[in-house]
Design a protein around this nucleic acid. Sequence first.
DNA 1: GTCTATAGCTAGATAGAC
DNA 2: GTCTATCTAGCTATAGAC
Lengths: 182, 182
Amino acid sequence: MMQGLLRVLRARGYDGASLKEFAEATGLKKASLYHRFPGGKEEMTAAVLAYTASWVEQNIYQVLTDSEYPPAERLTTLINNLRAFYADGDAICIFRALSTETGLDLFGLQLKKGMERWQAAFTELGLELGHTLQGAQLQAQQSLISIQGSLIVAQCLGQQQVFLDAVEQLKPQYLESNHAIN
Amino acid sequence: MMQGLLRVLRARGYDGASLKEFAEATGLKKASLYHRFPGGKEEMTAAVLAYTASWVEQNIYQVLTDSEYPPAERLTTLINNLRAFYADGDAICIFRALSTETGLDLFGLQLKKGMERWQAAFTELGLELGHTLQGAQLQAQQSLISIQGSLIVAQCLGQQQVFLDAVEQLKPQYLESNHAIN
DNA sequence: GTCTATAGCTAGATAGAC
DNA sequence: GTCTATCTAGCTATAGAC
């Protein structure tokens, strides 16, 4: 259900996504979608963003802050989750797809909250590894930039490896960084 | 003319951009646009990408490889050009806006060529600064990732400073990098 | 809760006057 | 070369049967 809506939104963006595609992707008819989401396309998209937020909570935030496992193992799990979520660099990020003018107008707050949650996850890991608050925040921002940027560059160049390399480097960047400089 | 089409495409993407908006942005009526671009929206977008390519050629490639100026000065000019082109982090990149499923289907080759030209510009600068070929290519890729990624993160977070910091760092990254390691 | 059918509108694109 | 007027197809959204 949500997976289908998410898939269409990622591939085609808010303006590009049509109710017909939503119907095909979910197996429901258009009128049935309106029964579940009386607010129409806007409400459907907001629901997808909420669904995405819970995915991030489970697969990013919980993973990076789970003190049951050592940081290296958490990063390995994170990398696997990222590769799965982005289909090894083939899939467009929902944040990118919705951060157009229309998307930012309608869903700006949800996009901001979502991004901040990603940032918080990386920041908490950095703090645990002994970084200063400022250093951890900067490195967290760098991680987000690296993920988002590598997806675009990979897809424009047609080289998924650009994305795979970028996420693979997250691990050494956190484990081998010089805390004194950061 | 092209500026108007470019502005609409960046803000709304290929699917989101309407001929009505194109007409308003250029001051021409829809039928007049079809006179100039018989191929319709697709031809208009391709023309915008060609226009963008020439901008990149003048403002990125020529700047970074102009041996009349020292590298530090070229990088300063580049940073100013990037800030202007992206409105200090407020404007969406045309590459991002068009690298959706539809956009990649229709303009994949132009997007690839464009990205490769950016990459070549940074790579040649790195080579001139004494980097190895592989090191220069990797750093060029990192620069593209940093620009694209910082734009998305900045716009989702509503913090233009993320982009401004990222482009400002391009200069030290090239001038202070350790060639032996790269 | 899901469907068929359709309303009302706007999209991309074209015809033809000037 | 630019315009007004218009076509068809697709869109979002709703009505109402089951």
